[in-house]
Design a protein around this nucleic acid. Sequence first.
DNA 1: CTGTTAGCGCATTCAC
DNA 2: GTGAATGCGCTAACAG
Lengths: 337, 337
Amino acid sequence: MKNSVTIRDVAKHAGVGVGTVSRVLNNNPSVSDLTRQKVLSVIDSLNFSPSQAARRLSRGKTMAVGVVVPFFTNPSVVKRLQGVISVIATSQYDLVLFDVENAEDRDGLLKNIIQREIVDGLLIISLKPSENDVTEIVEANVPTVIVDAEHPGFSRVIVDNVAGARQATEHLIQLGHHQIAYLNDDPTNPFNNAPTHDRYQGYLQALEGAGIPVRAGYYRQGTLDRESARHLTRELLQLPDPPTALFVYSDTQAIGVLEAARDLGLNVPEDFSVIGYDDIEAAKLLHLTTIRQSLYESGVIGGQLLLEQMLEPSLEPDEVVLETELIVRGTTAPLSS
Amino acid sequence: MKNSVTIRDVAKHAGVGVGTVSRVLNNNPSVSDLTRQKVLSVIDSLNFSPSQAARRLSRGKTMAVGVVVPFFTNPSVVKRLQGVISVIATSQYDLVLFDVENAEDRDGLLKNIIQREIVDGLLIISLKPSENDVTEIVEANVPTVIVDAEHPGFSRVIVDNVAGARQATEHLIQLGHHQIAYLNDDPTNPFNNAPTHDRYQGYLQALEGAGIPVRAGYYRQGTLDRESARHLTRELLQLPDPPTALFVYSDTQAIGVLEAARDLGLNVPEDFSVIGYDDIEAAKLLHLTTIRQSLYESGVIGGQLLLEQMLEPSLEPDEVVLETELIVRGTTAPLSS
DNA sequence: CTGTTAGCGCATTCAC
DNA sequence: GTGAATGCGCTAACAG
């Protein structure tokens, strides 16, 4: 049966009051060494361990942080989560995980988490909270930090997507490409569409900077999976005047792009250059040229920000911007004339 | 500030007692429709939501399940966890995640989880609990299920590793290979070494079944990473009489194997056949022939077993054995003479 | 059907 | 320094 030793049992056995036991439990200095030792030994012999539930109610703190992730399936999200886990594990907090797989999940999830008062802090990954959620969080005064999404009200760690996309596109331009297409994420994605817009902007900026006209026909958008990317790339490559290079919103999609090229008998990078974004594990395996963002590190920093925030709730929201890095591998090459 | 509306406020505003409010909160049928409506509307207008902490203490239930995973880094573990998440999300339980990265973490973690009474149920993935942990769990009477590890005391979902390994090795034999090496996980791995032994047994059985003598020099073991596998494979391939085929404990290691073959200028599968185990995402990308185990499904079933177990704690431990499947892709071929 | 009361196990006053 | 009392917010048992 349950280990139902309570603080009262300990008090009785040690011949002290419950208050004293509680004090030694919380390292309250105003306990004499003698009684402290006595209590400690009784705790040990009774194999007592305080009930979290009671402690939580009494102190009004849950000693848990909530982490909300969209599409736990997504490799980049997993990587970020890893970073978060690594820092939360060093703290006293438990980690409660919430996965949101669709828009219905999301609406109300945050509100629900807040209202049930099950966490002392919230870490939101790659998900833009709705305005309703935001007011809910603010009213409840729950320390919150966001990783890979923007909101001025909260501490956040983001990456400069405009710059990263520019970097990718400029790499292609430097290789001599002028017919550069862009395969985007679906910007109607309800979760977090800022990166979608930003990367497109970066793409446009790079083209404009090089004086290359933007061709509407070289733009495609689709969901974050391989199949969709494969299909759209085929469209692109079967254009009368197909692009010679393609910048893809994510590595996951880039995998589908590579498949499409193979389907059509095109050699990458000789006939067709491809650059992705994220640098997930698979990118290395496939020798995919890509833009690396510090996925794991973003989680670590996010976790640290949250811990600080919970310690010092009065802190102003902080913004950390992570650098991107161009990783040249085997899917981009100079334009062959 | 905190939303400090309590059940008492609701009772006052609705002109009823707290007991009644509690009843409607818990869908207790013995409340008249009229008062139920009244209470409900007050709850709504006050934006009241019961405190989990109080509820937990009062009911002696946490409404949370703990999930313990080793090496959150490991792709196969992530996949299993996904399955677990998908079913827990459909329940009323929150999911508290614990990652164990080293042996020190593990010792005491389970005990700690149990003693703090923070979960109503426990799901352990790819980790064999120590005997101390087991007695702790049994004494505390916490419903527990294990995924990808054995223990007679608990419900578990496992895969027949002997059969899977036999299947892999037989595939190689059928292709005409006689010089078949095995690259194993490190069996001193303190977390869960049963699969290590079992797969080795399956390998041996297949060889014996075909009358192929076992060569000690064709056995290597190392950690679950690419680098180690790469190194050990090079050793194997530089033997005076190198193997023509290799069965690898995991897909992760198989990636390193492929790298080693490339390092040495060997063509896979023409010169050297490789078969992995797990069928993680990367296996498909690399066209790796492998043994698929239902990773995601194992998590789903594990989650379901746990939910059942919590509903009906008197249930006998159940064992579910999942089938493996040979997935032939591009890294195995007939022995070229 | 419904109001009242007594805990759940601990933290935290307040006196001594 | 330490014991006793009060309350955290809710559930459940007991009357009515």
